[in-house]
Structure formats: structure tokens, C-alpha cells
Design a protein around this nucleic acid. Sequence first.
DNA 1: GTCTATAACTCGATAGAC
DNA 2: GTCTATCGAGTTATAGAC
Lengths: 204, 204
Amino acid sequence: MVDKKKDTTTEAKILDAARKVFIAKGMAGARMQDIADEAGINKAMLHYYFRSKDQLFETIFKESVGNLIPRVKALLNADLPLFTKIEMFADNYISMAMQNPYIPMFVMNEVNRQPQAFIKKMFGNDPPDLSKLVEQIEQEVKKKNIVPISPVQLVMNLMSLCVFPFLGKPILSMVIGLDELQFKNIMEQRKKAVPEFIIASIKK
Amino acid sequence: MVDKKKDTTTEAKILDAARKVFIAKGMAGARMQDIADEAGINKAMLHYYFRSKDQLFETIFKESVGNLIPRVKALLNADLPLFTKIEMFADNYISMAMQNPYIPMFVMNEVNRQPQAFIKKMFGNDPPDLSKLVEQIEQEVKKKNIVPISPVQLVMNLMSLCVFPFLGKPILSMVIGLDELQFKNIMEQRKKAVPEFIIASIKK
DNA sequence: GTCTATAACTCGATAGAC
DNA sequence: GTCTATCGAGTTATAGAC
């Protein structure tokens, strides 16, 4: 790695700053001036590199969600036991979110802001298909490996338990009284604790 | 109720409109013009009644969270069995959120925007105290009524399972493919399904 | 109390020098 | 490529007539 350019190119500085500001304040709340200040350059540069606020935002947004989607899709269609899928989803998602703790809120927000635009942008023509997973759950119920549970409820539970702690971090930290390190430790535990919690509930 | 004034007073019309717009678009995304249009009056009136956008927003925000907090506090300190508390929290919260499905996202967002200002505004000098609930959970573990579980993880699980579906509604509707009615039915089921799911996991 | 008109200001975007 | 200066659209807020 001799000739690494650092992240000192103007473009990289802009992207770092934009990521920070957009994620903290959302599209509507962010100011181009904030981003310029954060990057230590001036506003005109932002337009020189990314033409408009919309385009800069979209770059950040795609980068934030783009990484996750292919992995989720792969997992959905994988040929693995149900419990393994649950374990892998929890581990993958929580690991990603620990490295980028503000992404869940950021994404949730923008999806809320314009749900249909989001679908097109992120999934194009082939949205994620849960049918295989749903069928797998129904099979496990039929085989009496797990208790009778609605697949929708089970999927909702898994997502809730993985995603919510990052969305609700400020409230949870406040109500339960956690500092950064404690929060981090608890999330680390959760990679195993969530699948265990779910499996304990549904296993026969 | 002969002389009921309806909600046709200008102030009430403004509040109804502001609630709708702020909740849909957040503080930064909302426009005073949108609120005026929604209320069927003009912008100047908004300032006549509420002086500034900030003040109008704060009125709506306090109203949104204000109802919930006393009920949560009461439940936390109530002298009830653990499983009963879990059942009551799920039922209360999900019922509230079904009537006001955008409040969870709205609140989560604004808490995120300014966490410390939020604490002061909402709780003043006495923030909610979870210590009694935590102790109760530890007791149940010690008495071997439930499996060993960290109180923090259990509380987090309960909140996740109740709150997340409303935050993630657009994503869930998209991914799972739900219309309004289906979503409503699933949330109705969840009032019972969430406590059952939790209790099945932790009961010995 | 309610309205119209407009002031005051914020912010994204561009022009143009270097 | 980078900067300063400024434009112009969009927004909050106010003045003042009715």
C-alpha cells in the first residue's frame, strides 16, 4: 500500500462530510453549507463535483443501502435451515449496523419520505422475494419442528429485534441509562441473543 | 353536549392541520404554507395563534408524546406480575399506535434530532425509572420462573417488537407485500402475539 | 380575527476571477 | 480545481388594511 492516496482527495472529503451530515439531519434538514464546513471546503465545490444537493444525497443513500440489499437477497434464497437463516440475518445485520449505527434511522426515514421512489431506486425491477422463506416457515410448522406461527409475524419479529435497537438508541440509552460502551456490548451480545430468543420461543 | 363548539375554531383547525403535516414531513420538511392550506386558512393566522413555526411544532410534539409518558410511568411502577406488565404494555402501545400510526416515526425522529433537548422537554426533572422493573425481572430469574436473561435485553425485546412494526411499516408493507387492511389485522393480532412470543421464550 | 402584501432571511445554485 | 461574490427561488415572519 505504498501509493495510497489517503482520503484527502476533495471528492472523498465531500463524500465523508455529506455522509455525516445527511445521516445526522436527513435530506430536508441538511444544508449544503454544513457539508462544506464539515469538509473544510466551500459550497461551490459541492456543486462542481456533484452538481446538485439531490445528486449528492442520492450518492450517499445508494451507498448506504446498496451494500445490504444483495446480502439480504442472497440469504432469502439460500438453501439453508430456517434457524441458520435467522442466526445469519441477526449476525449480519447487527454487525453492519454496529459499524454504521446511523444508517438504519437514515434509511427508515427516507423510505418513509417517499416509499415508491425508494422501491425503484433500490430494487429496480426485481424486489426481494420472501415467498421462499415464507414457504420454508410453513413447512417447519407443518413438520411440527416449530410451533404454529404466522410467517409474517415471525419475519416481523426478527426484523424488529435486529433493527429497532439502532433506531431507538437515543431513547433506550436515555430510559435504560446506557453509555456508548455499554450499548456496544449489548449489541454484541444481541448477535447471539436474538436468535436464541426467537428459537427458544418457536422451537418445539 | 348541546353547545359543543365542534373543532371548527381556527385554533383547532390549525392544530389538526399542523399535526398532519408535521407528522408526515417532520419539522424540517414541513412548510407553513402546507399547514395553512391543509387548515384552509392563510399563513398569517398561524403566526397570529402560535407566533412561530418552532412554537407550533413544539405544541404538536408535546401533545404527541405527552399522552404516552404518564401511562408508561404508571405501568413501570405498578404492583403487577411481570407477565401482566408485558401484556399490558404491548396492548396499550399497539392500540395507541394503531390509532396514530405515524407518531412512532415522528417521535423517534425528533428524539434523534436533539436528544438532550428532548429529555428536558418531555421528562423535566423526573425521567422514567426502570429500576423497579429491572429488579422484578432479576427476581423472576432468581426464582427460576423465567430463564436467565439480561433485563436490558428483555426490555429491549419488548420495545422492539411493539414499536418497530410501525416505524418499518413502509418497508414491511413493501417487502412482505401488505395492504392497509392486512397491516391493520396483523397489528391487531400482535397485541396478543407479542406477549405470547416473549413469554414462550422466557417462561420455564 | 382575518386577510393581502411584502419585508427579511435562508439556501441552493451559478458566474467569473484566479 | 478552487475560490469569492451574488443571484434568485422559496420560506418564515410581520405590517397594516379591513
